[in-house]
């Protein structure tokens, strides 16, 4: 989520928070996708800032990159952590379960 000036808003942005008018009426609810006409309506209500979701392509690419790096680090970290017990069957099995769970945790 990030806070932006309404001038910076563009078509396709997704609201991360409701836009509430002074009288308590919800003008637009969160998760709404902005269009040109919606942006104009928001401007007419003298609203200067809105909260939108970080859904730009670059941002998602960054996240994917970080996730992959973390998984890679994690898998070699796990190998290192289990080095003293690497010849024990039970511990080898546990290591594999841990690897599986951590990798799955990042793909969720």
């Amino acid at each position: 989520m990030k806070r932006i000036k309404i001038e910076e808003a563009s078509e396709g942005n997704i609201l991360a928070k409701n836009i509430v008018l002074e009288n308590g009426i919800v003008l637009l609810s969160k998760k709404s996708t902005l269009t040109k006409s919606l942006i104009n309506q928001i401007k007419k209500q003298n609203i200067f800032f809105i909260y939108i979701e970080n859904n730009s392509k670059e941002y998602e690419d960054d996240i994917d990159y970080i996730k992959n790096e973390t998984i890679k680090n994690n898998l070699s970290d796990i190998e290192e952590r289990f080095i003293l017990v690497k010849d024990i069957k039970l511990m080898k099995d546990i290591k594999n379960i841990v690897k599986e769970v951590i990798t799955k945790g990042y793909s969720d």
Binding site: L90, V98, I102
Partner: peptide, 18 residues
């Protein structure tokens, strides 16, 4: 220690005894 959560002096995992 197996899951690597927190740190308690060493990263190395000990054996679970039968």
């Amino acid at each position: 220690k197996s899951l690597g959560i927190g740190f308690s002096g060493s990263i190395y995992v000990d054996e679970i005894k039968n």
